[in-house]
Simulated assay, not measured.
Amino acid sequence: MGIRGKLIAAVLTAGALTAVVSANVSTALASQPPATQSAAAAGAGQEDNLHKAARLLAVELGISGERALQVLRVLERVVPEGAITDDPRFIIIAKDLGVSPQRLSDALTAVKMKL
């Protein structure tokens, strides 16, 4: 068998392996329980919770829902879970909202309780 024949055989083998692997992955995904089937679905659930929290925070602080969503996204990135009110980043965020750090902390606690 020449080089051309070997190349064709390799391509056909690779195609067959791809088909087998794809079928196995599809079967494995189908056999998983719905809760673990899709990371995207889990991400969507987290995003829904973030929007719910933003709506609640907006009501607590009397700010727009969009602004509350921005605040929550910033807090997720820059302030560790359970941050204390004297964290400089937390203080800056509170001042930017026109509230005290304690008021922001109280509002976030209220949101967590409602969720």
Rank of each mutant, 00 (worst) to 15 (best):
M1D: 09
M1F: 06
I3P: 00
I3Q: 07
G5M: 09
G5V: 09
K6Y: 10
K6I: 11
L7I: 14
L7H: 10
I8M: 04
A9I: 03
A9Y: 01
V11W: 04
L12A: 15
L12I: 15
A14W: 07
A14V: 14
A14T: 10
G15Q: 05
G15A: 15
G15M: 14
A16M: 09
A19G: 12
V21Y: 14
S22D: 04
A23I: 05
N24V: 15
N24L: 15
N24C: 12
N24G: 11
V25D: 01
V25K: 03
A28C: 00
A30Q: 09
A30M: 06
S31H: 13
P33C: 05
P34G: 03
A35F: 10
T36C: 07
Q37K: 11
S38N: 02
S38R: 03
A39L: 11
A39I: 10
A40Q: 09
A41D: 06
A44C: 00
A44Y: 02
G45S: 10
G45E: 13
G45K: 08
Q46N: 11
D48A: 13
N49Y: 02
L50G: 02
L50F: 07
L50P: 05
K52F: 09
K52A: 12
K52W: 02
K52P: 01
A53P: 07
A54V: 01
R55A: 13
L57R: 12
L61P: 09
G62T: 08
I63H: 11
S64E: 13
S64G: 15
G65V: 10
G65I: 07
E66Q: 10
E66T: 14
R67W: 03
A68C: 06
A68W: 04
L69P: 04
L69I: 10
V71F: 07
R73C: 08
R73K: 12
R73M: 10
L75Y: 03
L75R: 03
L75P: 00
R77W: 04
V78L: 05
V79A: 15
V79P: 06
I84N: 06
D87L: 13
D87Y: 06
P88V: 06
F90Q: 04
F90Y: 14
I91T: 14
I91A: 13
I92E: 15
I92S: 12
A94R: 04
K95T: 11
K95F: 06
L97Y: 08
L97C: 00
L97P: 01
G98W: 12
V99L: 06
S100V: 02
Q102G: 14
R103M: 02
S105H: 10
S105G: 14
S105A: 08
D106S: 14
L108I: 01
L108R: 04
T109V: 14
T109N: 13
V111G: 05
K112S: 09
M113C: 02
K114Q: 14
K114L: 07
K114R: 14
